[in-house]
Simulated assay, not measured.
Amino acid sequence: MPTFKLTIAYDGTKFSGWQAQPDRRTVQGAVQDAWQKITSESVQVTASSRTDAGVHALGQVVGVSSATHLTAEQLHRALNALLPPDAVVKRVDAVPDGFHATYNAVGKRYRYRIHNDRCRPLFDRDTVWHVPQVLDANAMHQAAKVLIGTHDFASFQSAGSERESTVRTISCIEVRRVKGEHESLLEIDVEGNGFLYNMVRIIVGSLVEVGLGRRDEAWLAASLKACDRRQAGRTAPPQGLCLMRVDY
């Protein structure tokens, strides 16, 4: 049976997350509804990441097996004609049988955006976290280095989606203040081989504590070592988070 790999972008503001839920508007539900209208098939698509309500994506990857005779190009056009305006299929690729968007992923990159200004954001209010107090981006960047590598990230996992192992590898964390006219914007990029539930948002919430001068690098290292969710910072709100890329 043909298998397709869909790369999808969406504005998560008005979606109740990725995963299909009864009587809820979800990205998975929108994709499956569009697929059924095109092929008359009821399929269950799988995604690389089950993003939460309010979380966005530029590079979500979705896998679907189908008996359709339509080409990848035909499916691409048809899906974009039927999907709502806040979701778009960037590309459709035919892939070998057995491809699984979740289990075959070897790495992901997320970006978190913070509007760091006393004045609240307007046009990008649904895609940033507003932190009015001044943040020290350099201190955040330096402190984040203790999280790079292979560690037990139990302190950075919310309850509700327990995993067999809480060990993950982070290959890169970058914290930077965007130069130019948008210097009020901070971007935090986190790349790794996989992430626990709310892991990136808890990392961001912890780094903000450092940026505000309330905590330091030693605290972040101790929080990591504790393997206790109570020792890390708050969970940053969902709207600042975006899934940028998935590697296979």
Rank of each mutant, 00 (worst) to 15 (best):
I203W: 00
E181R: 14
E187H: 11
I202D: 05
A87C: 15
A154D: 13
A9G: 10
Q157M: 13
T166F: 09
P121R: 03
D228N: 14
T235W: 01
M244R: 07
R201C: 12
G98D: 14
E181T: 14
S165N: 15
S48I: 02
D189A: 10
V210W: 03
M140G: 05
D124I: 15
G211H: 00
T102K: 15
D33T: 15
T7G: 04
D247R: 13
Q44K: 14
V200Q: 02
P238K: 04
Y10N: 02
N80R: 06
S184L: 06
K179A: 15
G149M: 12
F195G: 00
E191C: 14
S49D: 03
R24P: 03
L224I: 05
T3P: 01
K145F: 03
D23G: 09
L241G: 04
D86H: 07
G192H: 01
V62P: 03
A72F: 09
C119T: 13
V190M: 04
G205S: 12
P84F: 06
L82G: 04
E73N: 13
V92M: 04
R125T: 04
C172H: 15
L83C: 11
F4Q: 00
A94G: 06
A87N: 04
A34N: 01
T39I: 07
E187G: 06
D52S: 11
V200K: 01
L147N: 09
Q19I: 09
C119G: 13
A94N: 07
E162C: 05
E73G: 07
D228G: 09
A218Q: 14
W35F: 10
I170E: 00
V64C: 05
H130Y: 15
N198S: 09
V178A: 05
T7P: 00
C172F: 10
Q44G: 04
Y197M: 10
S206Q: 05
R215I: 02
C242S: 11
V204D: 02
G160N: 10
L79T: 00
A139R: 09
D11Y: 04
G205T: 09
A87L: 10
P237I: 05
A9M: 14
I173V: 12
Q36D: 11
T26Q: 15
H56F: 02
R50C: 02
L185E: 10
W35K: 03
A47Q: 07
G59E: 04
K179L: 12
F99C: 06
A218W: 04
S48N: 09
R168K: 13
G29S: 12
G54H: 10
S40Y: 08
P121N: 12
Q231H: 05
Q60Y: 02
A94Y: 13
R113F: 09
T7C: 05
Q19K: 10
K14Q: 14
T26I: 12
